[in-house]
Amino acid sequence: MSQEPILTIENVSKRFTKDLDLAERAARKLGARIAPMTVHAVDDVSLSIRRGEVLGLVGESGCGKSTLGRMVAGLSAPSSGRILHEGRDTAKLKGAEARDVALKVQMVFQDPMSSLNPRMRVRDIIGEAPQVHGLVPRAEVDAYVERMLAQVGLDPATARRYPHQFSGGQRARVGIARALAVRPDFIVCDESVAALDVSIQAQVLNLFAELREEFGLTYLFVSHDLGVVEHISDRIAVMYLGRLVELGAAEDLIARPNHPYTRALVAEIPSFETGKKTYHAIKGEIPSPMNPPRGCHFHPRCPHAHDRCRIEVPRLRDVAAGRLSACHLNDRAA
């Protein structure tokens, strides 16, 4: 694995703003206290992903991990910040170059049913983009689609079927084949196995691992399930309410979590150890992202919170070799 970053996320934020409608604007003129509502789905996140690695991105639902994944895949534009693919700002590219970079970054979606067009045959689902973009000559598309199907462990004869004629696991494979067919080097997996049975999950995860070897792929693996991410990732990034709170090598992070939030997540990974294990849900509810707590977002639920946590936002900084964490407790210890 080389150290050269294939994808760099620089201070990326995504804000969703609900503007006031006419009546609300009028009410405001008359003195009502209404402000446009803004959600910081992703708040100043910086990350760089090395060529060939698997970066797991975990967090509770609503923490902005999927939004970040969608921005990386080019499906939505960052409100601020830049996303660089091999050093090139993806937002500034035009024409053929923009298309080539867009094809290099593909996405595998969560719901294997709604991510496949129900009115298209598998042959067209997989073969359309390579044909339209001229990656494969028209006459060879059928053969190419069959090769792709074989690659993801499906019978090439299934090319003539429609998505509803497949099982969930097979649909997930079709979705992977579709992404692979445009020869990407980076794949964003957005909860790609969350909708599958556990046994099928393992098969699809193995498939991801095989394809990575074969095509030298890099993954951004977005999931709420630390147990899944643990097995496939080289490094893990943990997000909480739009901010990156911890980043480190996978095994190390699981073994020695630094941030209290990561510690809480790791404590809840189910294990096969015999004996009694009691699970403690993290105290409290995830706060509303429309009105997040001041200071460290995690402080209302953190067992170690002190005054500084309520006021000052902790910076993400090195706490050990290759490990970043955003927690004031690290300053205390030092």
């Binding site: 298309r99 709604s114 983009a129």
Partner: peptide
């Protein structure tokens, strides 16, 4: 639905 996002991700022309 995701299949539209998938098509956008594949950089297919809007008209298509």
């Amino acid at each position: 639905k995701d299949y539209v996002d998938a098509a956008r991700c594949l950089a297919l022309p809007h008209r298509r």
